[in-house]
């Protein structure tokens, strides 16, 4: 796999590049205990910190918290303009989480995403677009509780899979 030269045949148009640094429309989520419970159940994590109020209250957390990657369920909003996704298929490249504090049941978490980088590579699947996004999660007391940096890979022509462009 090699990084493409910045020649004329790039998929990263001026229009696409204009999304770097642009913030998504802020979305606020109220963290509801059944949503946390469903997430813990879906990943198969039986830690009582996520479900058992009495247990959680007796710990240093003082109450029920969400699993670390529950943040994934708090989808960022759209960008103020339509993101011109050039490809049909999507793959998740990975995530880096930085936590200042846990998300608690009852929190109101505001989510804002922005693209920090766009680059392309050429490989087995043809040209692939790599999108690095930084997602900030801020609580009701204006404290930044966590940041997730994601790598999203898109590739291939044809009809877009449902969900492509949302991530």
């Amino acid at each position: 796999m090699t990084t493409s030269p910045s020649s004329g045949d790039t998929v990263i148009s001026e229009k696409l590049r204009s999304f770097i640094g642009l913030e998504s429309i802020a979305v606020m989520y109220e963290i509801e205990r059944h949503a946390v419970q469903r997430f813990a159940c879906a990943i198969g994590d039986t830690n009582p910190l996520y479900t058992d109020r009495e247990f959680a209250q007796a710990t240093s957390y003082g109450g029920v918290i969400a699993p670390p990657t529950f943040l994934r369920s708090l989808l960022p909003g759209d960008y103020p303009k339509l993101y011109p996704e050039p490809f049909a298929h999507i793959l998740d490249g990975g995530s880096k989480y930085r936590y200042n504090e846990p998300v608690r049941v009852g929190d109101r978490i505001t989510v804002v995403r922005k693209i920090s980088d766009l680059f392309e590579k050429h490989g087995r699947m043809g040209t692939m677009l790599f999108k690095i996004s930084e997602i900030n999660y801020t609580n009701q007391e204006s404290r930044l509780v966590a940041v997730q940096t994601t790598t999203t890979i898109t590739y291939g022509m044809g009809e877009k899979d449902s969900g492509v462009g949302d991530h």
Partner: peptide, 17 residues
Amino acid sequence: TTWMGVNGRLLELDVSY
């Protein structure tokens, strides 16, 4: 988080697929 127990704090988690 299972290993660290309830008095630990997860500060950073990086995963590559």
